[in-house]
Design a protein around this nucleic acid. Structure first.
Lengths: 200, 200
DNA sequence: CGCATATTTCATCATGTGATGAAACTACTC
DNA sequence: GAGTAGTTTCATCACATGATGAAATATGCG
């Protein structure tokens, strides 16, 4: 009955990538704390020790599988994608941009969302990323001479709206939001971002 | 050197309540999966076995400390609080109502927020609560003859906006949102809810 | 072939987890 | 004061977790 799983390399299979993918799925399902290395290994069809051979530990695996993938390489390009164009359509462009990024990296983005609430580090990273790298830049670009408190408020409200959309679509899966096609959401939520970023 | 923690009742202290409070704080900090019964016991200054004496297990403790407290007794009263009044101020009343409830039960509400992403059961409960008991009722009350897909979309978007506000204020603590006074948020977010619930 | 290197598994560790049963202690009743 | 019921701690269980070192296997190079 011995399954005698034999050792040594498995030809033609990128095991490291398999582990990364399994980790992404697992983190997306149960968050950082709820995911065990053994569950990841099981899902990847691999010995738990192998996970440690390729990654330094749970935090490293999380960083490599989730954080590195879901944070877009150049925040600045996101910002310019939003700010460049007619001022009265900033909101539309913002929603369109984010939905595009999210949909493309769905599983790792889900994992990131789920880990916001579990890990203080992730939470802080997301906070700083959203407020400083993204919406702070957008607001500052749109209206340079703005007091810091008003700037924080506008950026924060916009970020909150984006997070609500993400949570509703990917985590809580609210009917009507989870199954809407992206452009519908752009048309409905765009004006809201517009109003937060450029009141009046 | 023996600390000889003595057994038997401690006069004048409501230990059960202390455990409940410690559990609320702990669940709020680290979510369901990230919280251990021993951590709760430690925070309450109590032996871990005592937690089991008062509660059937981790799920029961969570239900008693978080769920029972943060879900308001009568959803219907919330709904009527929102719907009763001038139609053009539904959004303002909605935000004001929610912020009121949240601020009052802050720590347990935080715990609930953090558990949405961890537990599929909590997630489903929140989804059904928000869409059916609250925003579904509000939308239906405001515009009775509305197609189901449009009703779902409006309710979903409103729920997403509310969740975003909650996440931004209590979990991610976005500057500008976390420290704003409630009425400021009512004035800024109210029109958004208004637009989702009653477009045009 | 023989050897080196990378890959994979096994065996094992210390620790933390939820859980249970029994013993010690206090307060209350008769 | 003896007995009883409720409260609290202790000792311990079986199991899962993250982690490590060594052994086994396969591949590629000479």
């Amino acid at each position: 009955m011995g399954v005698e799983a034999r050792r040594g390399p498995r030809r033609g299979e990128d095991t490291r990538a398999a582990i990364l993918e399994a980790a992404r799925v697992e983190f997306a399902r149960t968050g950082y704390a709820g995911t065990s290395l053994r569950a990841v290994a099981r899902a990847a069809g691999v010995d738990p020790a192998l996970v440690h051979h390729y990654f330094e530990g749970k935090d490293d695996l999380f960083a490599q599988s989730v954080v590195l993938v879901s944070l877009p390489g150049r925040p600045a390009s996101l910002v310019s994608q939003v700010t460049e164009g007619p001022r009265e359509e900033v909101g539309l462009r913002a929603v369109r941009t984010f939905l595009g990024v999210w949909e493309a990296r769905r599983s790792s983005f889900e994992a990131l969302l789920r880990s916001i609430v579990t890990s203080e580090e992730v939470s802080r990273a997301v906070r700083e990323f959203l407020t400083q790298e993204i919406f702070g830049q957008v607001v500052a670009g749109l209206e340079p001479g703005l007091g810091p408190e008003e700037r924080d408020l506008r950026a924060g409200l916009a970020a909150a709206a984006a997070m609500g959309l993400a949570m509703g679509r990917y985590v809580v899966r609210l009917p009507g939001v989870a199954d809407a096609d992206p452009e519908t959401l752009v048309q409905r939520v765009g004006p809201v971002l517009q109003g937060y970023l450029l009141p009046r």
